[in-house]
Design a protein around this nucleic acid. Structure first.
Length: 315
DNA sequence: AACCCCCTCAACCGCCCCGCC
DNA sequence: CGGCGGGGCGGTTGAGGGGGT
């Protein structure tokens, strides 16, 4: 059924990534950039043969001696797994945890517009990944909305008050056959409840993507763990946020969905006065977004307006 | 202390879109 | 034009940890 799997699962590691695997993957991408995920594990395995130059040790009396030291068994991971690991955890610009109240609000508002379009939502939150936002929504925000009497799917007030939080550890709990298995909601059932406007899916490039060539300006990133390059910063093909912002900022007239805390400011603006000039005040951006959204809701042709508003986010 | 249940989130899976040939 | 492969997305799973009894 469907296409063949991305790779043979036979002999591949699964489950949590080890530090060694992370290092291997990071090293490879730092050198070659992203892309070609399916063939990456095989190529990354070459890094296991680490050339050791012994010239400094033996001086020149022995001539140039290079040893290739076998370091391990290779990056036995599915290419898709490599991509996921890099995109969600290893990229140097990832912000993890500490989702601010501002980000909370923005996620909720964007979700009300876009539905479960996690990648689009993540694209408006620098340093956040779709996976993180998706998890955060499912574990925190949906509950938060419910507790406030709002249906997290429709973002409308629920007619019935939210169910009181079930007491934990009612040992009389019936055996539903799976213990912690979650109740699976059928597609039809979900669609019936889900009345969020869903614009036509448009594939957009990830907000933070690396070019496979040198088309982006290079940023210097410190060597990272296990760097053996002598402590010098390594130059990576890496897009600056200024570039990204130039592409994205004009999506909605006068509205910038980027928000950022101190770390975000560092990532986005750095010390470049030009890029700083693009940074709007954080509070205003959120406020403008919310106000614009409210204005749309108040209009008679709400649906049409929401259509175009949501579409504009996709650009 | 042991057991059980629940929660979180990293990782996986299947499907879809797009570009290339 | 159709097939194929690469890449991306959203849904789901399950290991591990925390907390209550």
């Amino acid at each position: 059924m469907g296409r063949a799997p991305c790779c043979s699962k036979v002999g591949l590691h699964r489950g949590s990534w080890t530090a060694r695997e992370d290092t291997l993957l990071t090293k490879y991408i730092q050198t070659h950039g992203e892309g070609h995920w399916r063939s990456l594990p095989k190529k990354a395995g070459n890094y296991l043969f680490k050339p050791i130059l012994l010239r400094e040790i033996f001086e020149t009396s022995f001539g140039l001696i290079i040893l290739f030291v076998f370091l391990g068994e290779g990056l036995l991971r599915c290419g898709k797994s490599c991509r996921l690991r890099w995109m969600n955890y290893l990229r140097p610009d990832i912000k993890r945890g500490n989702i601010t109240p501002d980000e909370d609000d923005l996620i909720i508002r964007l979700h009300s517009l876009l539905g479960n379009r996690w990648s689009l939502i993540a694209g408006r939150l620098p340093g956040r990944t779709d996976n993180e936002i998706k998890n955060y929504w499912n574990t925190h925000l949906s509950k938060k909305l419910r507790s406030q009497g709002t249906d997290p799917n429709t973002h409308k007030k629920m007619t019935e008050p939210p169910e009181p939080k079930r007491r934990k550890n009612t040992r009389t709990r019936t055996n539903n056959g799976g213990g912690s298995k979650r109740v699976k909601i059928s597609k039809d059932e979900e669609n019936a409840n889900h009345k969020v406007h869903l614009p036509k899916p448009v594939r957009v490039t990830s907000l933070i993507s690396i070019s496979r060539n040198n088309s982006f300006e290079s940023n210097t990133v410190s060597g990272g763990s296990g760097s053996s390059s002598g402590g010098n910063g390594e130059t990576l093909p890496w897009p600056s946020f200024r570039d990204i912002r130039d592409d994205r900022v004009n999506g909605v007239d006068g509205v910038d969905f980027f928000i950022g805390d101190d770390q975000g400011q560092d990532l986005v603006a750095s010390s470049d006065p030009e890029s700083q000039s693009h940074m709007p005040p954080t509070d205003n951006s959120l406020q403008k977004l919310y106000e614009e959204y409210l204005q749309l809701l108040e209009r008679e042709d709400t649906q049409v307006q929401l259509d175009s508003f949501a579409e504009s986010l996709l650009i």
